[in-house]
Design a protein around this nucleic acid. Structure first.
Length: 258
DNA sequence: ATGGCCTCGGTTCGAGGA
């Protein structure tokens, strides 16, 4: 028998700038596991006590100003590991923990800036490294849940305006192929598993009234191994969390498992 | 109104984001 479990991912664009909003959201939703990205905070300044005060545990891996990931959970966080591999890389973009037997990864994929740039090459290299890491994790027979800001829109329908986005950063063939290589490991796009035809976005530009006009992208994802897909009840974007004063430019993606 | 942002660190701007 498995335990019902909700797992969410949210790029918060600065945990200290968004702390009250995230605490309120957790208290209201009672999500079991929350994967955070762009915490932009060193671990000694992460507001761990504030989460513990509402009975959540924290595993954080951050750095000053940029990047940073964390996993917040109402259950014990076991086997916490940070980084992808042993390669030299000072960017804090991956943390893993085991929650109720599920190996959960919170990932902040590189943005890539523009196709052909040095940052683009780093992004593709990072995705290949992640693939190799997850190949080992999946081969071990674990239930794996990879959640985060993947910074890739998998298909043209995952952007509000393909004419504007296709072929550019977040939507290039090489990025999409690197994402397909992750799925080839046996990881499935949870949103598409239960909502194959919906137009869904998770990010909207702060500028140009992006959110009111629903000019968005689907770049935050939850990739699950098959046994977790079989437990899927729903996958939802909480658009309410993108509204109001000082929102993140991303909304949370919430995965419910039976 | 026909253009419209936000974080961080560190100062009143620059880098980065997507």
């Amino acid at each position: 028998m498995s335990h019902p479990l909700t797992i969410a991912t949210w790029n918060v664009n600065g945990i200290r700038a968004r702390l009250d909003r995230v605490l309120d959201w957790l208290s209201r939703t009672q999500v079991d596991v929350l994967c955070l990205q762009e915490t932009k905070t060193p671990d000694d300044k992460f507001p761990t006590e504030d989460f513990e005060a509402i009975d959540y545990s924290v595993a954080a891996h951050g750095q000053k100003s940029y990047n940073g990931v964390a996993i917040i959970a109402r259950h014990d966080l076991e086997e916490v590991t940070v980084r992808i591999d042993d390669e030299d890389d000072d960017q804090a973009r991956l943390i893993a923990a085991t929650v109720l037997g599920v190996r959960v990864f919170s990932a902040y994929f590189p943005n890539g800036q523009s196709v052909g740039s040095d940052k683009y090459a780093y992004k593709l290299r990072w995705m290949a490294r992640l693939r190799d890491r997850l190949e080992r994790e999946v081969a071990s027979g674990r239930e794996v849940a990879l959640l985060g800001d993947f910074n890739v829109a998998p298909e043209p329908r995952d952007t509000h305006d393909p004419d504007q986005w296709e072929g550019g950063i977040l939507c290039s063939d090489q990025e999409r192929e690197a994402l397909a290589r992750l799925r080839e490991l046996g990881l499935h796009d949870a949103l598409r598993a239960v909502r194959p035809d919906d137009v869904v976005y998770t990010w909207w530009d702060y500028r140009l009234l992006g959110f009111p006009k629903n000019r968005g992208l689907r770049i935050d994802h939850a990739y699950l191994t098959s046994s977790l897909v079989e437990r899927l009840v729903s996958v939802e974007v909480d658009r309410e969390a993108r509204k109001g004063q000082q929102p993140s430019d991303h909304a949370p993606l919430v995965v419910a498992l039976r």
